[in-house]
């Protein structure tokens, strides 16, 4: 404050600051032994840097893993990602079902009153199926993949033609005596005229997650 005498404690504080910042005497330096800053500081810095980098990467990785749990589970479980392809004889086995595609006939004629709409045709697919499932009914969905990546579902908007065609393959039965799995099964698929089919996909809720059968078309 103006008009007041200088504080006598100011001088002592200045002395204390001077002592704290003063260079140590050579005797004190000798007594303390060699300084460790020069040899160890860069090494310790490198270790600190590496540890921090590893911790950062691990932290971000863990966060990303937990944050994407639902997306990963949904993507994997709900999608078709693992194609099971046929052996040299055309057979595919996804226990307890074995099947193979034995016929694919384009532009099938189904008789008067059952013709497809203008610009569409029916593709007939015939399968041989065997199943060791005798405890429960199982069905397998059939789709046709075309060059544009479109999937055309069998049994949709096709005529009901008695026992000639099924909308889904029968892949298991709970009554093997009276209602066995037919060894030959055929289905119809409605496809636009511009579709170029490349393969047939067979899928079932009973298949392992993300797995499906892919049968190339000739």
């Amino acid at each position: 404050m103006s008009g007041q005498a200088p504080d006598p404690y100011d001088d002592r504080a200045q002395v204390a600051r001077d002592e704290a910042t003063a260079e140590p005497s050579p005797a004190l330096v000798r007594a303390a032994g060699p300084a460790d800053d020069g040899a160890l500081a860069p090494e310790r810095s490198r270790v600190t840097t590496v540890v921090a980098a590893v911790a950062l990467v691990l932290g971000l990785g863990a966060w990303g893993w937990f944050a994407t749990e639902d997306a990963r589970d949904g993507w994997w479980a709900l999608g078709e990602h693992v194609a099971i392809t046929p052996d040299d004889d055309g057979w595919v086995e996804v226990a307890p079902v074995r099947l193979r595609l034995v016929g694919a006939e384009a532009d099938v004629r189904t008789g008067p009153g059952t013709a497809p709409p203008a610009g569409f045709s029916y593709l007939e697919l015939t399968f041989e199926v065997t199943s060791e499932e005798t405890e429960a009914y199982r069905s397998c969905e059939v789709e046709v993949l075309d060059e544009q990546g479109r999937l055309f579902l069998a049994g949709r908007e096709v005529p009901g033609l008695g026992d000639d065609y099924v909308s889904e393959l029968m892949c298991g039965t709970s009554d093997p005596e009276d209602d066995p799995v037919p060894s030959t099964q055929a289905t119809l698929v409605l496809v636009p005229d511009d579709a170029v089919p490349v393969s047939v996909r067979v899928d079932s809720r009973d298949f392992p997650p993300a797995s499906f059968v892919e049968l190339p078309l000739p």
């Binding site: 860069p42 810095s45 490198r46 600190t48 840097t49 921090a52 980098a53 950062l56």
Partner: peptide, 10 residues
Amino acid sequence: TRARWAVATM
């Protein structure tokens, strides 16, 4: 130092 810059950046 460079190490401190790296830590600060991370």
